[in-house]
């Protein structure tokens, strides 16, 4: 894949992400904060972007959406990799969901 094609794919992924984020926030802000895992400030900024701004921001050589799982444990649970006592995929995924749902709530209390 040449770099021009790579850039086009990054732009497309960015655009898809930004548009989805805007749709989610407009539909239900509270739910969107949970689904996207972004801060309230980021959500307020995202929702105000015009289409022209969206296109401009999407055209970059960097991806705008960041990996949400920043924790080895959660990643191992999601992939059912390296787990000992419970190795059922559904159950380990549920465990990962509990950990992920708990994540942001904590950092918010720490920030205030």
């Amino acid at each position: 894949m040449d770099s021009e094609q790579l850039l086009a794919e990054i732009r497309e992924a960015n655009l898809t992400y930004l548009m989805l984020a805007q749709n989610l926030i407009r539909k239900d802000r509270a739910e969107a904060l949970f689904r996207l895992g972004v801060s309230e400030e980021a959500a307020d900024l995202l929702v105000m972007l015009s289409t022209a701004q969206l296109l401009k921001i999407a055209s970059s050589n960097m991806l705008l959406c960041r990996f949400r799982v920043d924790d080895d444990l959660v990643w191992n649970l999601l992939t059912s990799h390296n787990v000992k006592k419970v190795d059922n995929t559904t159950t380990t995924q549920l465990h990962a969901s509990i950990l992920m749902a708990g994540k942001y709530a904590e950092s918010m209390t720490a920030a205030h």
Partner: peptide, 16 residues
């Protein structure tokens, strides 16, 4: 626990 974690998340990030 899953429900309560989601509930906490929502109540901490949104004023509902």
């Amino acid at each position: 626990s899953l429900f309560l974690n989601i509930h906490e998340y929502l109540s901490k990030t949104s004023e509902l």
